[in-house]
Write a protein that binds this DNA or RNA. Structure first.
Lengths: 294, 294
DNA sequence: GATTTTATCTGACAAAAGTCAGAGAAAATC
DNA sequence: GATTTTCTCTGACTTTTGTCAGATAAAATC
């Protein structure tokens, strides 16, 4: 029996070929605007919000001399302006001019056209998008960053909405957020509590909240990871970082509740040193309760 | 509500960034062997079975002058040998020497290491692989080729095995191939019949058989597309090509049977001009029967 | 305040990649 | 059999990319 359909190595190699320069599907998007790859990459880095020249240099792994000339070129074209950083006159910051922003937008739509052309011809674009999310998240797992935001941040709200939708699907009883104890915003905002968001290339792929109480402990709420990010230990990372944050807020005891439908979460809590305790609230949805001393 | 979790454009851009040179995850695999990208790409193309220099040149979009020098460089390194094509002395063919094959293998394992490192750290590698298959197949859909093989080809057998497994899952009754009328090999081999295989970057992603009978018609059997290839019209392409092939074999009437559990297939037959007819065999599994005049 | 470190810039190179016109040989076409 | 087309090779370029050793100025450290 031939293994061409199942062998991971063969499939990985095929994926690699399909996606790399060799096939030319994706990388060619940076050409076609009459500008070499070097300046195009720098322009795109600036367009994606990177201002600090040293930061761009590290990201694109460019020599300082080459970087200097590339920036000069873009400046001469009128696409960017350079100024010294206000707090450190050695560093330089680059920002797009109006012309630069237009040029950047052109690159963006050019790169969209490539893959979204394929997307449009697909009968089930959502399945393809979901697959792309999984691959992009896996490839970018090392670059995934966890940031603290207010729970009112639009990206946080996107995560929470997805979390509620998923609960409604997975819980046999359904889920109505208004029946559950919805944490007050300020209870999940410093100095009382905190809210953490996991970002992969700018896309929110997970969250967790630390909710203050007046009962001698804080509660962990709203732990969620995107379907595309599962199996990569992201929930554990969020929890670890939340514990660290709780310590800096002076919290010494954590509690959380969960539902037995959320198997992976409960297994993770047990493994992470949480001990199961008796019910400590009258929320209708949870049926498992945990505590951990910091 | 922020759309960062659902907006196709945002998700596509993120995928693009994750996979392109900018992140450096994939493309850097071609470096690290002390050889510039140009010769490395040519060596890899040869390693993947491309011999004809003009073919490689078209594939990699290289100038003839540049190509000539790259080949010379690889020849001087002792990695390839060049000879004129036996049937056309203008064309040149490149083949790997033993040293070249070793070098190519080193590139392969280097490129494996990149993605399979990520694969190994994933708790559900099969889900990630399946996602990679979907993306690779969608990106390569224009390069998908349909070839005719004997039904005994190992790649054909891989497809047929997957087809039987899937029938066993989807049919309420299960599926035992020995109870169904398994076509004789020679009935699906020219000049009586035919067997077509769809290949995407070398991976078999679909098949269909044309089975000869002595009853004035031929039967379409074993139409299957890989899960990763669905939604891209591959089954229709296979059927179209099979009809063309049937005509060249002098066949004027086609029949097929199917099961109502295979919704997509039956919808596709109707749309492609097949007319439903009465049961014409006593196979236990099918419950729908179709005919088409060529 | 002197010294060290950091970030950028400059000039001088070298390597790699891409372009173009023309030559030579073989095949295809008329 | 003459002409055209195809494919490769060569030489003479240009552009792009990468490297390195100072120079300069600002910040950080002693």
């Amino acid at each position: 029996m031939h293994d061409c359909l199942t062998d991971p190595i063969a499939r990985t190699r095929r994926f690699h070929r399909a996606v790399t320069t060799e096939s030319g599907v994706l990388d060619s998007s940076f050409l076609g605007r009459g500008r070499p790859l070097g300046p195009a990459r720098v322009l795109n880095a600036i367009g994606h919000g990177r201002q600090d020249v040293a930061d761009i240099r590290a990201f694109l792994r460019l020599d300082s001399g080459l970087m200097s000339r590339l920036l000069r070129g873009l400046e001469d074209e009128g696409l960017i302006t350079l100024h010294s950083a206000p707090n450190d006159a050695r560093r330089r910051l680059a920002t797009l001019t109006d012309a630069g922003a237009a040029e950047f937008a052109a690159y963006e739509s050019l790169s969209d056209a490539q893959v979204s052309g394929i997307l449009n011809r697909h009968a089930r674009p959502e399945a393809l998008l979901a697959a792309m999310d999984i691959v992009a998240t896996a490839l970018g797992i090392d670059r995934t960053e966890i940031v603290e935001t207010p729970p009112t941040d639009p990206r946080a709200i996107a995560c929470l909405t997805a979390y509620y939708d998923e609960l409604a699907q997975r819980l046999a009883t359904g889920f109505d957020v208004s029946l559950s104890a919805d944490p007050e915003t300020q209870d999940m905002t410093p100095p009382r509590g905190a809210f953490l968001l996991a970002l992969s290339d700018g896309m929110p792929i997970g969250c967790v909240g630390l909710k203050a109480t007046d009962k001698g402990y804080a509660e962990v709420k709203r732990l969620w990871t995107a379907p595309a990010a599962r199996g990569m230990g992201l929930a554990k990372r969020l929890m670890d970082q939340l514990e660290t944050r709780a310590r800096t807020l002076g919290i010494t005891r954590l509690r959380l509740d969960s539902n037995s439908a959320l198997l992976e979460a409960i297994a993770m809590y047990r493994k992470a040193g949480w001990t199961e305790i008796d019910r400590f609230n009258d929320d209708p949805y949870p049926d498992h309760f945990f505590e951990k001393a910091l």
